[in-house]
Write a protein that binds this DNA or RNA. Structure first.
Lengths: 302, 302
DNA sequence: CTGTTAGCGCTTTCAG
DNA sequence: CTGAAAGCGCTAACAG
């Protein structure tokens, strides 16, 4: 920087101010300095800058998986002038590794946690960083179920089956019931969240006294399995049965299933906006996670 | 750090050496210092550390898209003790934005370019950083075709159709011909790289005098479309026709298609290894991009 | 508007 | 093996 200052005939402080767009520099000087800097291919050393200035212009993004949510967050952060330090903490070993090493030491202005469930001590170690933190959880399944039910009822469906991935044990029937739907117990079925799982579900349903006019599947892969098995059975989707997936995986898009999606990119961008507000010392209020119904070709009027 | 030094009864220099595992500290001292540091929740300030030390322990990863390749690279880098600065430079505007701002100023020890095609001036601006750079390109389609053809011929297929995504204009027939395959021109077809596109391809093939015993599809989605349409037509895959996808998208996995995959994660890890070698002043030699045939349930003996 | 002067929190010689 | 001192390249007060 002092080389640039010398070449431009000003002090280092002026170069610093000029290049960062700080007020207190005449337009002429600023232009001149910028030109000299560009000519000399000079770029501010960010470490030194943050050391002296206190701001780091970097955000740590901890995520369980590389996803569109991440893409949205990254874009928003870069636009705001922040660098993204990425940590993919999917499995246990990388998690413990990370929290042991604690590589964030005074390196970031904030932390974004994406679809990550932390233990208390892990959360504490994040809190110890003393910087603002925003968490984005998985979209609540109950909300998704509700959106799907509304959609199906609007299409006149009354006989709806609910396909849940193994391990989901909450009571969703209630939501269907509340909406005024008949829910015979044999129409709540569990399966593995895979294509195979979905195919088996069709067998189960076919064994019953009659087929529902629609199914809601918590798993995208299972929804695809249901779709494929029905089709191979010579049945037509959505004429013979409507399908709604509660998981907006790419596969559901590919075979054209109606799906309830968390608006991934938007969620990421929204989280970033919150984080930046916190960094600037503002307050945020919890907002609903955006949920979106994407109607494709697997749902139709009864 | 000086607080920790005081608390531990040593100098700051010793704390620094102890915490970084530098030689020249007695084991006893090191243990003691580490304990005190942990108790005081002290973590080295990385900016100050890199300012003073010259090493930054950060790598910039520029990528066109958030992908498994990125996940692989991130994992390998973190394991090596490097932080990842992520820049998703998919569209033109974010690209120009990035290269204007040039936010990398002496902030990283190296750069990883993933599936990104840069203009000359962009490449130059990366080179100006003066740090090692490694590029990972898209796997060459020709190599993939070759792998697929080998697989099919081994299964006894001689009547193979080639389904290319619109926009692909290179001559791949040649590869088939060289391998000794018959390639009537009507068996090279183009379609949009979507499920719909694949379904239409089946219509085209059914219109012909006879069906090929196998198809190779450059697009994963189109391959799925072919699969679905055949199935709906009452035909059984792979008995009636084998399908190979040249794109290892997740969807191909989900419906169980045989696919030629660039080994994404592995590619990322390999690139990181190369980059680290360069950073340490070593030499690397160009290696083949790893390609992998994943045999699932869509290919069988004629 | 601009320059001068102190550091920011470390690492690294160089002595001891 | 350990400590003291001298910066790393910037920014922020403070003067002018």
């Amino acid at each position: 920087m002092s080389d640039v200052a010398k070449a431009a005939g000003v002090s280092a402080a002026t170069v610093s101010r000029a290049l960062r767009g700080e007020p207190g520099v005449s337009e002429a000087t600023r232009r001149h300095v910028s030109e000299v800097a560009k000519r000399m291919k000079y770029a501010i050393a960010r470490d030194a800058s943050s050391l002296a200035g206190g701001r780091r212009y970097a955000i740590a993004v901890l995520t369980s998986t590389v996803s569109p949510l991440l893409a949205g967050a990254e874009g928003a952060l870069r636009q705001a002038g922040y660098d993204v330090l990425l940590y993919v903490l999917g499995d246990e070993s990388s998690r413990s590794h990370f929290f042991n090493a604690n590589p964030l030491g005074r390196r970031v202005d904030g932390v974004l946690l994406l679809k990550l469930t932390l233990t208390e001590s892990e959360q504490a170690s994040i809190d110890d960083l003393g910087v603002p933190t925003v968490t984005v959880d998985d979209t609540d399944l109950r909300d998704s179920v509700k959106v799907a039910v509304d959609h199906l009822m609007q299409l006149g469906h009354r006989d709806v089956a609910l396909v849940l991935a193994d391990g989901i044990d909450e009571e969703y029937d209630e939501i269907l019931t509340k909406a005024g739907l008949d829910v015979p117990p044999e129409w709540t079925v569990w399966c593995s969240p895979t294509v195979d799982g979905g195919e088996q579900v069709v067998d189960v349903l076919l064994d019953g006294p009659r087929l529902p006019t629609a199914v809601i599947s918590s798993s995208g892969a299972a929804a695809v399995g249901i779709f494929l098995r029905m089709q191979r059975d010579g049945r037509v989707i959505p004429d013979d049965m409507s399908i709604v997936s509660l998981d907006g995986q790419e596969i559901t898009r590919v075979v054209g299933l109606t799906a309830v999606e968390g608006a991934h990119r938007e969620q990421g961008e929204h989280a970033v906006a919150d984080l930046l507000t916190l960094i600037r010392g503002g307050e945020i209020e919890p907002a609903d996670q955006p949920i979106r119904l994407v109607v494709r070709n697997s749902t139709a009027r009864v």
